[in-house]
């Protein structure tokens, strides 16, 4: 996993609550056995009509957001299915940061495992970013070390769990780290081996 330190990018406002992972990547694209190449399927049914033509009014299809890399949405982003294809698609499309007032638990974890920074921010601040993102070319700087977001006339501290911050900053291989606890895992198993299967 690539370490995440500071990042600067253009905001793409997605003015929706409860965006579920079925919308982020519909099921017909879950059949592949690779991790890469899902960007073209991102928000497929919102981006494309039945004939595969781009829907002009969907925010990602507007030319001014073509290079955006920070997605800002409303409450409970990523609810529903556990499919990690959702963060894979967001990342492959070019998003490195997602900002919302709240995230569904599994999606939030899945972002973390892929080096995507999911930031929880108060609703009024999210609202501000969505409104400004819709009317101006809003460039936002994200400093994970300092836990700071900044843009012209905008500065905000954000909270993140210290462990998750460390994993992201260092781009840690979590499995390799867990394997250093091998002795404790073995000891646990010896003590609890009675459990069948």
């Amino acid at each position: 996993m690539h370490p995440f330190k500071t990042f600067e990018g253009r905001v793409c406002p997605l003015d929706r609550t409860n965006v579920d992972t079925d919308q982020i990547i519909p099921k017909q694209f879950l059949k592949r056995v690779e991790r890469k190449g899902f960007g073209s399927c991102l928000f497929y049914n919102w981006r494309f009509d039945e004939k595969g033509n781009k829907k002009k009014d969907f925010v990602l299809n507007k030319p001014e957001y073509a290079q955006s890399s920070i997605l800002v949405a409303r409450d409970n982003f990523g609810c529903g299915s556990s499919r990690e294809h959702a963060p894979w698609a967001l990342q492959d499309y070019g998003f490195r940061v997602i900002i919302a007032p709240s995230f569904a638990d599994i999606f939030y974890n899945n972002c973390q495992k892929n080096g995507i920074l999911a930031i929880r921010l108060d609703s009024p601040r999210v609202d501000e970013l969505i409104r400004r993102g819709a009317t101006e070319a809003l460039a936002l700087t994200v400093d994970l070390e300092q836990q700071k977001l900044s843009a012209p006339n905008f500065a905000e501290h954000f909270e993140i769990d210290p462990y998750q911050k460390e994993v992201l900053l260092k781009g840690l291989d979590e499995i390799a780290m867990t394997l250093t606890y091998e002795d404790e895992i073995v000891a646990y198993e010896k003590q609890h081996e009675a459990v069948v299967h």
Partner: peptide, 17 residues
């Protein structure tokens, strides 16, 4: 429910953080 990275973690370690 867990994502695929956590599936890999459980396969390799039988644990989760």
């Amino acid at each position: 429910g867990i994502g695929t990275s956590e599936v890999e973690h459980v396969l390799a370690t039988q644990t989760l953080w």
